[in-house]
Design a binder for these strands. Structure first.
Length: 464
RNA sequence: GUCCCCAUCGUCUAGAGGCCUAGGACACCUCCCUUUCACGGAGGCGACCGGGGUUCGAAUCCCCGUGGGGACGCCA
């Protein structure tokens, strides 16, 4: 059987981390089985869908590298097709017109809630044999409802959660077309999954409750029933549900915040899915391993610390060209404009080991290209009168030095021996003068990359 | 309220009845390395929600609690 999966976001906001994982899993499942991955934009909510959101989703997918084999399809462009099918259902009796007003329905819901029963449409316009229907009120445009079976159960074997059974008595006759004639979500999904021959529906588990209705409609249409896999939700770092108001951010924000897409992808892959003890793996490896059997049915809490760790790993592994481009881009907000160069490469090489974030990496190497703002506490602690004296001796030896790391290191040792001091007594003030702070990689290497002119100049600034 | 789902270290997870004295990873702690900060290396702390069954044997199967979550729209 041909595997065809789809990612079907509604363009009412950016692509967030939960959607990204759903997309990733759907994508990987298709890849794993040499199938097709389809992107479908569910934009039937005209009031809330925006072109900006469509673009944001496309951008997010692109940044993550989740390419699709078909699409993007837009449901709004398929209107006529939906309407045709609704007419057909009206004709064959699997759907009917309902003239209830919103007010009527609200009242019904409220009454049912008070009685402690599940709020649902009571079927007052549902045609039955020997049932006398009220006269359609004049001037009220009807909605179309699906005539859901009222007995028996709907069941499916969820590929993540196992068998789920729902009594049809729990379901009501959902609206498939609004009073203005536009079809609604549950209906469009069914038609599209059918038309697009989706074999596996992988989606968030907030759709579990829609599944029985969709299966019933699929059956009414004589369509094949796809397999379903419902992914549990991702909670925020604080264990709270992610929402627009709380914690949910665009995947693009991870770019802005200095994360490599490889890290985000790898992190997401391990959030709710596992392959034994494997933690770090490429997307190619992921696509070979990915299966639905090893998806956790319970909700997962997002952990930024672990993402940071993965990001550090991918920064270490990142090709220098890309790292230079990323760093130089992230240096610009600091008003530092540098092209790719051997100096930039050397600086990055020194700092990439200790960075877990691209923005941090840029900040770390910034002092190579612009005068650093000295940390006053470090200055006070390390730039002592004794240190000034040591540095005066040291800087004098720099002008004629063969400018190489080994030579610099040798001259440092020389000064340390002559002055009968411990190495840090030289290294620390030097570090502060050169970098502005007390933390850096080996200061001989830093000084080498900084260059003789700049090094001498920065030291002298403290000696005058 | 009704229906549905979920439950292993702080977090992500391994675990398909004996391989479990419950494994790995992040974080945390200690030590080593050391020129400061990191990287790295070696250790350590740390969990099967509770109660009943089933079984020779349960983290694993069943039931009941408890706790969490989701859904109940002319939203998707």
């Amino acid at each position: 059987m041909q595997v065809r999966t789809r990612f079907a976001p509604s363009p009412t906001g950016f692509l967030h981390i939960g959607g990204a994982r759903t997309a990733l899993f759907s994508w990987a499942y298709a890849k794993r089985h040499q199938g097709q991955f389809i992107l479908r934009v569910e934009d039937t909510d005209v009031a809330r869908s925006t072109p900006e959101a469509v673009q944001a989703i496309l951008d997010g997918m692109h940044w993550l590298g989740l390419s699709y084999d078909e699409g993007p399809y837009y449901q709004m462009q398929r209107m006529e097709h939906y309407k045709t099918i609704i007419q057909k259902m009206l004709a064959d009796g699997t759907a009917y017109l309902c003239y209830c007003s919103k007010e009527e329905l609200d009242a019904l819901r409220e009454q049912q809630m008070q009685q402690g029963i599940k709020p649902r449409y009571d079927g007052r316009w549902r045609p039955e044999v020997d049932k006398h229907l009220p006269m359609p009120p004049a001037g009220v445009p009807p909605v179309v409802r699906f005539k859901n079976p009222d007995t028996g159960v709907v069941a499916w074997d969820d590929l993540v959660k196992g068998r789920i059974e729902i009594a049809n008595a729990e379901l009501d006759d959902l609206i498939i077309a609004r009073a203005d004639g536009t079809p609604t979500y549950n209906f469009c999904v069914v038609v599209d999954d059918w038309d697009m021959q989706i074999s596996h529906v992988i989606r968030g588990d907030d759709h579990v409750n829609n599944t029985p209705r969709q299966i019933n409609m699929l059956k009414a249409l004589g369509a094949n029933i796809p397999q379903y896999a419902h992914l549990s939700m991702i909670l925020g770092d604080d264990g709270q549900k992610l929402s627009k108001r709380h914690g949910a951010v665009s995947v693009m924000q991870y770019d802005e915040e200095g994360y490599l897409p490889e890290a985000v992808l790898n992190y997401l892959a391990r959030l709710g899915w596992s392959h034994g003890d494997e933690e770090v793996f490429s997307m190619q490896q992921f696509c070979e391993w990915f299966d639905l059997d090893h998806i956790t049915p319970s909700a997962a809490q997002f952990n930024t610390e672990k993402l940071n760790w993965l990001n550090a790993h991918y920064i270490k592994a990142c090709p220098m060209d890309k790292l230079m481009a990323e760093t130089s881009k992230r240096l610009q907000p600091l008003n530092i404009y540098v092209e790719a160069s051997s100096q930039l490469a050397a600086a990055i090489q020194l700092y990439r080991e200790r960075a877990n974030n691209l923005n941090q990496l840029a900040q770390d190497v910034a002092f190579f290209f612009a005068q650093p703002q000295p940390n006053s506490a470090d200055v006070e602690k390390h730039i002592t009168p004794e240190a000034i004296s040591v540095m005066t001796t040291f800087v004098a030896k720099l002008s004629h030095l063969d400018w190489a790391v080994e030579a610099i290191h040798a001259v440092m040792n020389e000064v340390v021996t002559e002055q009968q001091i411990k190495f840090p007594k030289l290294a620390m003030p030097l570090r502060v003068m050169l970098t502005g702070g007390a933390q850096s990689p080996s200061i001989d290497q830093v000084m080498y990359i900084l260059g003789r002119e700049v090094a001498i100049q920065r030291i002298n600034a403290y000696l005058s």
